[in-house]
Protein backbone atom coordinates (compact mmCIF):
# COMPACT_ATOMS: atom_id res chain seq x y z
CA UNK A 1 0.00 0.00 0.00
CA UNK A 2 1.19 3.49 -0.87
CA UNK A 3 2.06 5.48 2.24
CA UNK A 4 -0.24 8.39 3.05
CA UNK A 5 1.56 11.70 3.36
CA UNK A 6 -0.04 13.94 5.95
CA UNK A 7 0.72 17.65 6.14
CA UNK A 8 0.18 19.33 9.51
CA UNK A 9 -0.35 23.06 9.05
CA UNK A 10 0.83 24.32 12.42
CA UNK A 11 0.02 27.94 11.70
CA UNK A 12 -0.62 31.15 13.64
CA UNK A 13 -3.91 32.67 12.44
CA UNK A 14 -4.50 36.42 12.65
CA UNK A 15 -7.33 37.02 15.09
CA UNK A 16 -10.50 38.03 13.26
CA UNK A 17 -8.78 38.60 9.90
CA UNK A 18 -10.66 36.03 7.83
CA UNK A 19 -9.41 37.07 4.37
CA UNK A 20 -5.78 36.89 5.37
CA UNK A 21 -6.24 33.51 7.03
CA UNK A 22 -8.07 32.17 3.98
CA UNK A 23 -5.19 33.29 1.77
CA UNK A 24 -2.72 31.62 4.14
CA UNK A 25 -4.72 28.36 4.01
CA UNK A 26 -4.69 28.40 0.21
CA UNK A 27 -0.96 29.05 0.20
CA UNK A 28 -0.28 26.16 2.58
CA UNK A 29 -2.62 23.85 0.66
CA UNK A 30 -0.59 24.55 -2.47
CA UNK A 31 2.65 23.90 -0.60
CA UNK A 32 1.27 20.65 0.83
CA UNK A 33 0.14 19.56 -2.60
CA UNK A 34 3.57 20.30 -4.05
CA UNK A 35 5.08 18.23 -1.22
CA UNK A 36 2.91 15.28 -2.23
CA UNK A 37 0.50 15.33 0.71
CA UNK A 38 -2.81 13.47 0.47
CA UNK A 39 -4.28 14.89 3.68
CA UNK A 40 -3.72 18.40 5.04
CA UNK A 41 -4.86 19.24 8.56
CA UNK A 42 -5.32 22.80 9.82
CA UNK A 43 -5.89 23.75 13.48
CA UNK A 44 -9.11 24.68 15.29
CA UNK A 45 -10.42 28.06 14.14
CA UNK A 46 -7.41 28.37 11.85
CA UNK A 47 -9.53 30.55 9.56
CA UNK A 48 -10.53 33.02 12.27
CA UNK A 49 -8.29 32.84 15.31
CA UNK A 50 -9.47 31.60 18.69
CA UNK A 51 -10.10 34.38 21.21
CA UNK A 52 -12.88 35.95 19.16
CA UNK A 53 -15.45 36.89 21.80
CA UNK A 54 -18.04 39.16 20.10
CA UNK A 55 -16.09 38.99 16.85
CA UNK A 56 -17.41 35.44 16.40
CA UNK A 57 -20.58 36.64 14.69
CA UNK A 58 -18.57 38.90 12.42
CA UNK A 59 -16.34 36.14 11.02
CA UNK A 60 -19.01 33.40 10.86
CA UNK A 61 -19.61 31.59 7.58
CA UNK A 62 -22.43 29.31 6.47
CA UNK A 63 -21.18 26.02 5.14
CA UNK A 64 -22.14 27.14 1.63
CA UNK A 65 -20.30 30.45 2.00
CA UNK A 66 -18.50 31.27 -1.28
CA UNK A 67 -15.29 31.88 0.66
CA UNK A 68 -15.38 28.36 2.09
CA UNK A 69 -16.35 26.90 -1.27
CA UNK A 70 -13.46 28.82 -2.83
CA UNK A 71 -11.08 27.17 -0.38
CA UNK A 72 -12.69 23.79 -1.10
CA UNK A 73 -12.10 24.28 -4.81
CA UNK A 74 -8.37 24.04 -4.06
CA UNK A 75 -8.75 20.44 -2.88
CA UNK A 76 -9.01 18.55 -6.16
CA UNK A 77 -7.32 15.22 -5.52
CA UNK A 78 -6.69 16.21 -1.92
CA UNK A 79 -8.31 15.93 1.51
CA UNK A 80 -8.15 18.85 3.93
CA UNK A 81 -9.57 19.53 7.37
CA UNK A 82 -10.14 23.23 8.03
CA UNK A 83 -11.84 24.96 10.93
CA UNK A 84 -14.02 28.05 11.13
CA UNK A 85 -17.03 29.61 12.84
CA UNK A 86 -20.14 28.10 11.27
CA UNK A 87 -23.40 29.99 11.31
CA UNK A 88 -26.41 27.68 11.08
CA UNK A 89 -29.69 28.52 9.33
CA UNK A 90 -31.16 29.41 12.71
CA UNK A 91 -28.13 31.69 13.38
CA UNK A 92 -26.56 29.62 16.08
CA UNK A 93 -22.75 29.85 15.92
CA UNK A 94 -20.64 26.71 16.10
CA UNK A 95 -16.95 26.00 16.23
CA UNK A 96 -16.73 23.75 13.18
CA UNK A 97 -14.22 21.60 11.32
CA UNK A 98 -14.94 20.75 7.69
CA UNK A 99 -13.57 17.96 5.56
CA UNK A 100 -12.86 19.39 2.12
CA UNK A 101 -12.26 16.84 -0.60
CA UNK A 102 -12.06 16.94 -4.37
CA UNK A 103 -13.42 20.47 -4.48
CA UNK A 104 -16.38 19.93 -2.13
CA UNK A 105 -17.30 20.56 1.47
CA UNK A 106 -17.88 16.90 2.24
CA UNK A 107 -18.63 16.97 5.95
CA UNK A 108 -18.85 19.37 8.88
CA UNK A 109 -18.24 18.45 12.50
CA UNK A 110 -19.50 20.88 15.12
CA UNK A 111 -17.54 20.99 18.37
CA UNK A 112 -19.44 18.96 20.97
CA UNK A 113 -17.77 20.06 24.18
CA UNK A 114 -17.30 23.77 24.75
CA UNK A 115 -14.98 24.42 27.69
CA UNK A 116 -16.36 27.20 29.87
CA UNK A 117 -14.08 27.18 32.89
CA UNK A 118 -10.65 28.47 33.79
CA UNK A 119 -9.40 30.59 30.90
CA UNK A 120 -12.14 29.29 28.56
CA UNK A 121 -15.45 31.00 27.82
CA UNK A 122 -16.69 29.17 24.75
CA UNK A 123 -20.25 28.44 25.84
CA UNK A 124 -20.91 32.16 26.12
CA UNK A 125 -20.24 32.69 22.43
CA UNK A 126 -21.01 29.33 20.78
CA UNK A 127 -23.60 26.58 20.58
CA UNK A 128 -22.54 22.96 21.09
CA UNK A 129 -22.87 20.40 18.31
CA UNK A 130 -25.13 17.35 18.76
CA UNK A 131 -23.76 14.83 16.32
CA UNK A 132 -20.76 12.57 16.38
CA UNK A 133 -20.34 10.81 13.04
CA UNK A 134 -17.51 9.37 11.04
CA UNK A 135 -17.07 10.24 7.40
CA UNK A 136 -15.96 8.21 4.40
CA UNK A 137 -13.03 9.85 2.72
CA UNK A 138 -11.37 9.61 -0.63
CA UNK A 139 -8.40 8.14 1.24
CA UNK A 140 -10.25 4.81 1.39
CA UNK A 141 -10.76 4.89 5.16
CA UNK A 142 -13.27 6.47 7.48
CA UNK A 143 -12.17 9.56 9.35
CA UNK A 144 -13.26 10.61 12.80
CA UNK A 145 -13.00 14.38 13.23
CA UNK A 146 -13.06 16.08 16.62
CA UNK A 147 -12.16 19.50 17.92
CA UNK A 148 -9.86 20.12 20.89
CA UNK A 149 -11.97 19.67 24.07
CA UNK A 150 -13.96 16.90 22.35
CA UNK A 151 -10.92 14.72 23.06
CA UNK A 152 -11.06 15.41 26.78
CA UNK A 153 -14.14 13.17 26.82
CA UNK A 154 -13.37 9.46 26.53
CA UNK A 155 -16.56 8.60 24.70
CA UNK A 156 -15.59 10.66 21.67
CA UNK A 157 -12.57 8.73 20.35
CA UNK A 158 -14.21 5.49 21.44
CA UNK A 159 -17.45 6.18 19.57
CA UNK A 160 -15.59 7.28 16.46
CA UNK A 161 -13.51 4.12 16.44
CA UNK A 162 -16.55 1.90 17.00
CA UNK A 163 -18.21 3.70 14.10
CA UNK A 164 -15.38 2.63 11.85
CA UNK A 165 -12.87 5.47 11.92
CA UNK A 166 -9.26 4.44 11.34
CA UNK A 167 -7.83 7.93 11.44
CA UNK A 168 -8.86 10.05 14.41
CA UNK A 169 -8.21 13.70 13.69
CA UNK A 170 -8.19 16.30 16.42
CA UNK A 171 -7.79 19.95 15.49
CA UNK A 172 -6.93 22.24 18.40
CA UNK A 173 -6.26 25.71 19.67
CA UNK A 174 -4.78 24.59 22.95
CA UNK A 175 -3.46 27.43 25.10
CA UNK A 176 -0.15 26.66 26.76
CA UNK A 177 -0.18 26.95 30.53
CA UNK A 178 1.03 25.28 33.71
CA UNK A 179 4.65 26.06 33.07
CA UNK A 180 6.61 23.82 35.38
CA UNK A 181 9.96 22.14 35.37
CA UNK A 182 8.46 18.85 36.57
CA UNK A 183 6.70 18.16 33.28
CA UNK A 184 8.31 16.04 30.58
CA UNK A 185 8.17 18.92 28.09
CA UNK A 186 8.16 21.85 30.52
CA UNK A 187 4.53 22.63 29.83
CA UNK A 188 1.71 20.90 31.67
CA UNK A 189 -0.76 21.23 28.81
CA UNK A 190 1.57 19.58 26.32
CA UNK A 191 2.37 16.74 28.70
CA UNK A 192 -1.35 16.01 29.26
CA UNK A 193 -2.19 16.05 25.57
CA UNK A 194 0.65 13.68 24.77
CA UNK A 195 -0.62 11.21 27.33
CA UNK A 196 -4.16 11.39 25.94
CA UNK A 197 -3.23 10.92 22.31
CA UNK A 198 -0.98 7.96 22.89
CA UNK A 199 -3.65 6.35 25.03
CA UNK A 200 -6.43 6.89 22.49
CA UNK A 201 -4.32 5.62 19.60
CA UNK A 202 -3.47 2.47 21.53
CA UNK A 203 -6.95 1.80 22.93
CA UNK A 204 -8.75 2.44 19.64
CA UNK A 205 -5.91 0.90 17.60
CA UNK A 206 -6.23 3.84 15.22
CA UNK A 207 -3.99 6.61 13.99
CA UNK A 208 -4.39 9.82 15.96
CA UNK A 209 -3.60 13.03 14.10
CA UNK A 210 -3.37 16.15 16.24
CA UNK A 211 -2.92 19.60 14.76
CA UNK A 212 -2.50 22.42 17.26
CA UNK A 213 -1.94 26.05 16.38
CA UNK A 214 0.89 28.37 17.41
CA UNK A 215 1.08 32.14 17.89
CA UNK A 216 -0.75 34.29 20.40
CA UNK A 217 -4.24 35.70 20.76
CA UNK A 218 -4.25 38.52 23.29
CA UNK A 219 -2.57 37.08 26.39
CA UNK A 220 -2.64 33.38 25.56
CA UNK A 221 0.01 31.50 23.63
CA UNK A 222 -0.66 28.31 21.70
CA UNK A 223 2.00 25.67 21.91
CA UNK A 224 1.82 23.72 18.66
CA UNK A 225 3.48 20.35 19.17
CA UNK A 226 1.24 18.72 16.54
CA UNK A 227 1.60 14.96 16.37
CA UNK A 228 0.80 11.79 14.52
CA UNK A 229 0.48 8.71 16.72
CA UNK A 230 0.45 5.18 15.30
CA UNK A 231 -2.19 2.56 16.28
CA UNK A 232 0.48 1.05 18.54
CA UNK A 233 0.49 4.22 20.64
CA UNK A 234 3.96 5.20 19.43
CA UNK A 235 4.57 8.69 18.11
CA UNK A 236 5.35 8.70 14.38
CA UNK A 237 6.00 12.42 14.38
CA UNK A 238 6.08 15.30 16.83
CA UNK A 239 6.27 18.89 15.61
CA UNK A 240 8.29 21.39 17.63
CA UNK A 241 6.61 23.47 20.31
CA UNK A 242 5.70 27.04 19.27
CA UNK A 243 7.30 26.94 15.78
CA UNK A 244 5.08 27.81 12.86
CA UNK A 245 5.42 25.43 9.93
CA UNK A 246 3.98 22.93 7.51
CA UNK A 247 5.16 19.53 8.69
CA UNK A 248 4.80 16.40 6.58
CA UNK A 249 4.80 12.84 7.82
CA UNK A 250 4.20 9.53 6.05
CA UNK A 251 2.06 6.80 7.54
CA UNK A 252 1.23 3.25 6.49
CA UNK A 253 -2.52 2.81 6.65
CA UNK A 254 -1.81 -0.94 6.73
CA UNK A 255 -0.58 -0.44 10.31
CA UNK A 256 -4.19 -0.20 11.44
CA UNK A 257 -4.97 -3.70 10.17
CA UNK A 258 -1.76 -5.15 11.55
CA UNK A 259 -2.39 -3.65 14.98
CA UNK A 260 -6.05 -4.70 15.07
CA UNK A 261 -5.23 -8.29 14.09
CA UNK A 262 -2.51 -8.52 16.70
CA UNK A 263 -4.35 -6.61 19.38
CA UNK A 264 -8.10 -7.06 18.74
CA UNK A 265 -9.30 -4.56 21.32
CA UNK A 266 -11.98 -3.14 19.04
CA UNK A 267 -13.25 -6.64 18.24
CA UNK A 268 -13.61 -7.25 21.96
CA UNK A 269 -15.33 -3.99 22.77
CA UNK A 270 -18.80 -4.52 24.22
CA UNK A 271 -20.86 -1.52 23.21
CA UNK A 272 -24.10 -3.30 24.14
CA UNK A 273 -22.83 -3.57 27.71
CA UNK A 274 -21.91 0.11 27.69
CA UNK A 275 -25.29 1.01 26.32
CA UNK A 276 -27.14 -0.98 28.97
CA UNK A 277 -25.12 0.46 31.82
CA UNK A 278 -25.26 3.94 30.35
CA UNK A 279 -29.04 3.70 30.20
CA UNK A 280 -29.10 2.76 33.85
CA UNK A 281 -26.70 5.56 34.80
CA UNK A 282 -28.63 8.06 32.75
CA UNK A 283 -31.92 6.95 34.30
CA UNK A 284 -30.40 7.39 37.73
CA UNK A 285 -28.98 10.80 36.92
CA UNK A 286 -32.23 12.04 35.47
CA UNK A 287 -34.25 10.72 38.40
CA UNK A 288 -35.84 7.68 36.79
CA UNK A 289 -36.13 4.67 39.08
CA UNK A 290 -33.98 1.72 38.23
CA UNK A 291 -32.02 -0.23 40.75
CA UNK A 292 -30.19 -3.20 39.37
CA UNK A 293 -26.99 -4.10 41.08
CA UNK A 294 -26.65 -7.65 39.80
CA UNK A 295 -26.24 -9.36 36.43
CA UNK A 296 -29.44 -9.28 34.33
CA UNK A 297 -30.18 -13.00 34.50
CA UNK A 298 -29.44 -13.49 38.20
CA UNK A 299 -31.81 -13.75 41.15
CA UNK A 300 -34.95 -14.88 39.31
CA UNK A 301 -37.10 -13.01 41.84
CA UNK A 302 -36.51 -9.59 40.28
CA UNK A 303 -38.19 -8.62 37.02
CA UNK A 304 -35.92 -8.42 33.95
CA UNK A 305 -34.19 -5.06 33.73
CA UNK A 306 -35.58 -4.17 30.33
CA UNK A 307 -39.07 -4.38 31.73
CA UNK A 308 -38.10 -2.43 34.83
CA UNK A 309 -36.38 0.15 32.67
CA UNK A 310 -39.33 0.78 30.42
CA UNK A 311 -41.86 0.58 33.20
CA UNK A 312 -39.81 2.43 35.75
CA UNK A 313 -40.60 5.98 34.80
CA UNK A 314 -41.71 7.10 38.21
CA UNK A 315 -39.81 10.05 39.59
CA UNK A 316 -37.48 9.53 42.50
CA UNK A 317 -38.62 11.32 45.61
Amino acid sequence: MQPLRIALAQLAPRLGVLEENLARHRELLAQARAAGAGLVVFPELGLTGYQLQDLAAEVAMRKDDPRLLGLASDTKGLSAVVSFVEEADDHRLFIAAALLEDGDVRFVHRKLFLPTYGLFDERRFFAAGDRLRTVDSRLGVKLGIAICEDFWHLGVPETLALDGAQLLINVSSSPGRDLAAIHEVGLGTAASWRTLMRTYAQLTTSFVIFCNRVGMDETISFWGGSEVIAPSGDAVFTAPLFDEGLYTVDIELGDVRRERIGLPLLRDERPELHLRELRRILAHRTGLEIDEASEPDEGGGTPPPAKRATGGREKRP
Binding site: A180, A181, M216, S221
Partner: peptide, 20 residues
Protein backbone atom coordinates in the same frame (compact mmCIF):
# COMPACT_ATOMS: atom_id res chain seq x y z
CA UNK B 1 11.13 23.42 44.06
CA UNK B 2 7.41 23.68 43.26
CA UNK B 3 8.05 27.07 41.64
CA UNK B 4 10.77 25.85 39.31
CA UNK B 5 9.84 26.46 35.68
CA UNK B 6 11.26 25.63 32.30
CA UNK B 7 13.06 28.94 31.73
CA UNK B 8 13.56 28.41 28.01
CA UNK B 9 9.81 27.96 27.39
CA UNK B 10 9.07 30.97 29.59
CA UNK B 11 11.62 33.07 27.71
CA UNK B 12 10.23 32.01 24.36
CA UNK B 13 6.60 32.73 25.27
CA UNK B 14 7.45 36.11 26.80
CA UNK B 15 9.59 37.27 23.89
CA UNK B 16 6.78 36.30 21.48
CA UNK B 17 4.29 38.05 23.75
CA UNK B 18 6.25 41.33 23.69
CA UNK B 19 6.75 41.19 19.94
CA UNK B 20 3.07 40.40 19.32
Amino acid sequence: PELAIDTEIARRVLVDFIRN
